[in-house]
Simulated scan of single mutants.
Amino acid sequence: MPIRKIIHIDMDAFYASVEQRDNPSLRGKPIAIGRPAEERGVIATASYEARVFGVKSALSTAEAFRLCSGLILVQPDFTKYEAISIELYKIYQNWTDIIETVALDECYLDVSHHRSATIIAHEIKKRIKDQLQLTASAGVSVNKLLAKIASDINKPDGICVVEPGIVSEFIKKVPVKDINGVGSETMKKIYSLHLGSTCNDLQVLPLIKMIEYFGSFGEKLYYYVRGIDDRPVFSDRESKSIGTETTFQVDMYDLKKLHEIINEQLREVVSRGIEKSLKWRTVTLKIKYKNFKQITRSKSFDYFDDDFSLFSDEICLLLKEIDITQGVRLSGVTISNFVHKEDEHYLF
């Protein structure tokens, strides 16, 4: 089987970096993108200067100011971020059409048909810096799991390559908490069982024990801690849905804050749908409680639309069915049942 070549591109503090680029007075200062504390806002992202103080995404704005009294809060400009995301997508298309967009600032590229993924990653980073005056970090490896882990290693403006021959040694040192899908509850279980904290520690467990300890996720985790991940890069052109999700570092019990986060997730997926000239009929809310029970709630309309406010109102209604007292560890929003705008008139 041919070796796959996967690149994970992650823009560095994307929203904050855009604002610092466009406003020189913000450069070198701790800034955060988010809504005001009086609106019970949450932080979408923070500059690296702010992260030194512990300011990070999903933190309440009030808590962010408690951690950093000199923090500068900037209102998000999603129209601008979406426009830049479109430019990023155009850059990626110079090398491949197999692009899976995870968020406005993050994507996977399958460049298996090229000779060197490492050279391409360097070229993409240079093109982004030259054209957009922004920096990105890149991870290069044989699958999505390893590429994503690698992209975090040399941030910001870094690159990390995990070649096929070093995968087994590389993954042993990776903390389990850095594995995709592992949240606070999984780590609590691992610590309570005294299993250690690295992928190497969990490799001693047979598959049957992983499933016993971690349920259905145990099978995935069994392979992930060995650096094995067969998930394909889903080309956006072939996507049957567009979604995003967030695993919280601390379980969520604040319904208003959760609503704010879910609304921002909806903004992301709506913008990605609009980028692709799509309209859709269905919006789905995904919630995973701290006990790993997962529920989804969907609403389908009789017509296609791309209006944010329409789907935001529906998300608000779906959210009323959520029992926040159980503690929410993950939320996600997905849109589906697409039609291309250019094809829409053929439906009638």
Rank of each mutant, 00 (worst) to 15 (best):
Lys90Gly: 01
Lys90Leu: 09
Lys90Tyr: 04
Asn94Asp: 09
Thr96Met: 07
Thr96His: 06
Asp97Arg: 10
Ile98Leu: 10
Ile98Trp: 01
Val102Arg: 00
Val102Ile: 15
Leu104Glu: 02
Asp105Ser: 09
Glu106Met: 03
Cys107Tyr: 04
Tyr108Lys: 08
Tyr108Ser: 06
Ser112Trp: 01
Ser112Lys: 00
Arg115Ile: 13
Arg115Ser: 12
Ser116Leu: 02
Thr118Met: 00
Ile124Ala: 07
Lys125Phe: 01
Lys125Glu: 00
Lys126Tyr: 09
Lys126Ile: 07
Lys126Ser: 14
Arg127Thr: 15
Ile128Cys: 05
Ile128Gln: 01
Lys129Leu: 14
Leu132Lys: 04
Gln133Arg: 13
Leu134Cys: 09
Leu134Pro: 07
Leu134Thr: 09
Ala138Asp: 00
Ala138Lys: 01
Val140Ala: 06
Val140Glu: 08
Val140Pro: 06
Ser141Ile: 12
Ser141Lys: 09
Val142His: 05
Val142Tyr: 05
Leu146Pro: 03
Ile149Asn: 02
Ala150His: 08
Ser151His: 07
Ile153Arg: 13
Lys155Met: 12
Gly158Pro: 11
Val161Tyr: 15
Val162Met: 09
Val162Cys: 12
Glu163His: 13
Pro164Glu: 07
Gly165His: 14
Gly165Val: 02
Lys172Phe: 01
Lys173Pro: 01
Lys173His: 10
Lys173Leu: 12
Lys173Trp: 00
Val174Tyr: 05
Pro175Asn: 02
Val176Asn: 03
Lys177Val: 11
Asp178Asn: 15
Asp178Tyr: 04
Asp178Ala: 14
Ile179Trp: 03
Gly181Gln: 06
Gly183Lys: 10
Ser184Trp: 01
Ser184His: 11
Ser184Asn: 11
Glu185His: 08
Glu185Asp: 00
Thr186Gln: 13
Met187His: 05
Met187Ala: 11
Met187Tyr: 06
Ile190Ala: 14
Ser192Met: 05
Leu193Met: 14
Leu193Glu: 15
Leu195Pro: 08
Ser197Lys: 13
Thr198Cys: 01
Cys199Phe: 09
Cys199Pro: 05
Cys199Val: 11
Asp201Met: 01
Leu202Asn: 10
Leu205Glu: 04
Leu205Asn: 08
Leu207Asp: 00
Ile208Cys: 03
Ile208Gln: 13
Lys209Arg: 15
Ile211Pro: 00
